[in-house]
Design a protein around this nucleic acid. Sequence first.
RNA 1: CGGGGCGUAGUAUAUCGGUAGUAUAUAUGCUUUGGGAGCAUAAGGGCCGGGUUCGAUUCCCGGCGCCCCGACCA
Length: 425
Amino acid sequence: MLQSELFTKTRREAPKDEVAKNAQLLIRAGYIDKLAAGVYTYLPLGLRVLKKVEQIIRDEMNRAGGIELLMPSFHPKELWEKTGRWNTMTDLYKVADSSGREVALGPTHEEVVTPLVGSFISSYRDLPRAVYQFQNKFRMELRAKSGILRGREFIMKDFYSFHRDEKDLAEYYEKMKAVYKRVFDRIGIGEQTFLTFASGGSFSKYSHEFQTITPAGEDTIYLCVNCRVAINKEVKTEQPNCPSCKGSELREERAIEVGNIFELKTKYSNAFGLSYKDEEGKPQPIQMGCYGIGLGRVMGAAVEVFADEKGIVWPEAIAPFSAHLLNLSAETDEVNFAARALYEELSRRDVDVLYDDRKDVSAGEKFKDSDLIGIPLRVVVSKKTLGEKKYEMKKRTEDSARMVGEEELFAAVNKNSLGDLPSDR
RNA sequence: CGGGGCGUAGUAUAUCGGUAGUAUAUAUGCUUUGGGAGCAUAAGGGCCGGGUUCGAUUCCCGGCGCCCCGACCA
């Protein structure tokens, strides 16, 4: 897309009320805007990142057998009374309409998905099942903080599986660990993200979180240097050694929870009185698991992990664009023509390009903006490059640029287009 | 929810119980064009309510908003 048509602008300074690196950089570069504490707008650039994260997750969830649907945010009070959480969940948003009818704004969807899917399950032949959605969640955080790492409204992928017995649930649960690992690997934060043993509540010994190591994280984890599995501080006292390999050399780290998986077992299916008939016609309880990923947290964690002093550095898979084309001589017809031609050629090759075609903007400002926005590959077209009949190319992670020919440029760009993304042209 | 802090222009800040200053961003003109370019001109500001006072942006009280530490976080 043309940068001259992007309605957002970069800013030199971060708003004084943002301290978190992810929020400062994302606001300065024009990815997000704060509406209220813990409530952010995703601007065109930010939405593109979010959609790329979403598409990777969607692909993996589909491969894991999930079927996508979309449930409402308005949840009748009765559903939450049925599970007892209307009164016990302290961060539940409760709203009443003018007739006095009360609803919850969904912080999670067990109360909706359990009776929904359960109504279609009557036989062992209907199991297993798995459904998921991407949806806005609402949690009345007493203290929203850390930019988009902990908001009051945020987008989450929540996935729910239904099984005939604990064995089938356990096998699926193990499979989902591998699926999650692949998700974070593909997104580009896999090296910093670790399977972490966490509290299992009253139904299982552990649940599992996926924690991305960053000083901005809110959790303390202990990472086993031997097997690369971690344990959350909340269960460290009862489990001093690595729960996986029993190793005792654990390294303390700060981390942000980007995903979690949990064996719900029959907690919710029992609350809604769900059962299925087995081969002998006997009613049996339905076993459930749930699996979440916070999209904003993934995005914020990537900023925290990779940003440098100049700005954001996106992993290629979730960058809003694959290439940032800078036209440094936008007053010169010949250069405009050449830059425009390159822009169109890259677009034809399915490369997402942000083309900085702005006039009356100095070269220095375009470079600064490009560094701040953090697109993986920068391509410069100017009188100078045109004179040499080459392009100047530099990765965001590299210190210096080099001149390349067309073929070398095309070979270097990442074809990462998702087609008709929002704000695509 | 306990504790602390902060609300001045789009943004970042300064000063002050008596005409609110600077930078940047914005508009216009000229110059400039490979790392946030220069000059000139213009426009733009005290969160809301109450109190003290001749006079409040400043002091006091209340509200609202935002940030930080902690607690909480199926």
